[in-house]
């Protein structure tokens, strides 16, 4: 049994006096694709930030790739909830940001831009991109260093249904090709079920683990597979349970 890539056990996370995460513990093992779903404000982004080493002010234990979470592990790729492109760099320079000034000319930049459908925008500035284009550029940047662990925070929220399907399949292909481990935050339960081996459902007020759904369906999967729909239904009931509990509270 290999050590899990992510081993998380947060007993409490507060902002000022407000507890936003009460009790969340889960593990992610090598090669797994895991989705986090839950109502807005339940702490999904906060969890991702903790795992990425951007926030170390919490009670509990966390280990990522065998260490306490820390910034800049070469093997971790992070895609924020908002694109966070640097406005003074072109799209290509943003994607190759890791390599500094020479990053834009790296062959991998052109390759990734083609993959996310931005080949024509390599020299555009972020202000010239639509929301979905900016998000795709941010995804390309997250994939640039071929990370072993990919952390994605609602990466497809601003793209149209068609592009979203393409990007989902791209993510799946890349994860499979590099044997990458993926932790994906999404509000789209169908997407979570289609892409993941496991869907972790969180409850809010404050964030807690609600339950999880295993998706033991081999890839390639068919989006119209009734088995997927069934599992999606299960995840949705878990989520709804959250809603019921919330209104009772």
């Amino acid at each position: 049994m290999t050590q899990p890539l992510i081993d998380l056990s947060i007993t409490e996370k507060r902002f000022a006096e407000k507890t936003v995460i009460a009790d969340v513990a889960f593990q992610v093992v090598q090669g797994e694709v895991v989705s986090l779903v839950g109502p807005s404000g339940c702490g999904k982004s906060t969890l991702l930030r903790i795992i990425a080493g951007l926030d170390s002010d919490y009670d509990g234990q966390a280990s990522v790739l065998g260490h306490a979470p820390r910034l800049h592990l070469d093997e971790v790729g992070l895609v924020f909830q908002e694109p966070r492109l640097l406005p003074w760099l072109t799209v290509a320079q943003n994607v190759g940001f890791e390599l500094g000034a020479k990053g834009a000319r790296h062959p991998r930049v052109a390759e990734l831009l083609a993959e996310v459908g931005l080949a024509d925008h390599a020299n555009a500035y972020p202000k010239q991109l639509s929301g979905g284009q900016a998000q795709r550029a941010a995804i390309a940047r997250g994939l640039f260093s071929r990370p072993r662990l990919l952390l994605l925070d609602e990466p497809f929220s601003a793209v149209d249904a068609f592009t979203r399907m393409r990007l989902q399949d791209l993510l799946k292909a890349i994860a499979a090709r590099h044997d990458a481990t993926v932790l994906l935050v999404t509000h789209d339960v169908g997407e979570a079920v289609y892409l993941s081996d496991r869907v972790i459902v969180l409850a809010s007020g404050p964030g807690r683990l609600r339950g999880q759904v295993r998706v033991d369906i081999p890839h390639p999967r068919d989006r119209r597979d009734p088995a997927l729909a069934l599992l999606e239904g299960q995840a949705l009931s878990l989520l709804e349970g959250v809603a019921v509990e919330q209104s009772a509270a």
């Binding site: 910034l71 800049h72 966070r84 640097l86």
Partner: peptide
């Protein structure tokens, strides 16, 4: 702050 954070993520 978000852009500074991005820089920090890249070490």
């Amino acid at each position: 702050r978000k852009l500074v954070e991005l820089g920090q993520v890249y070490g």
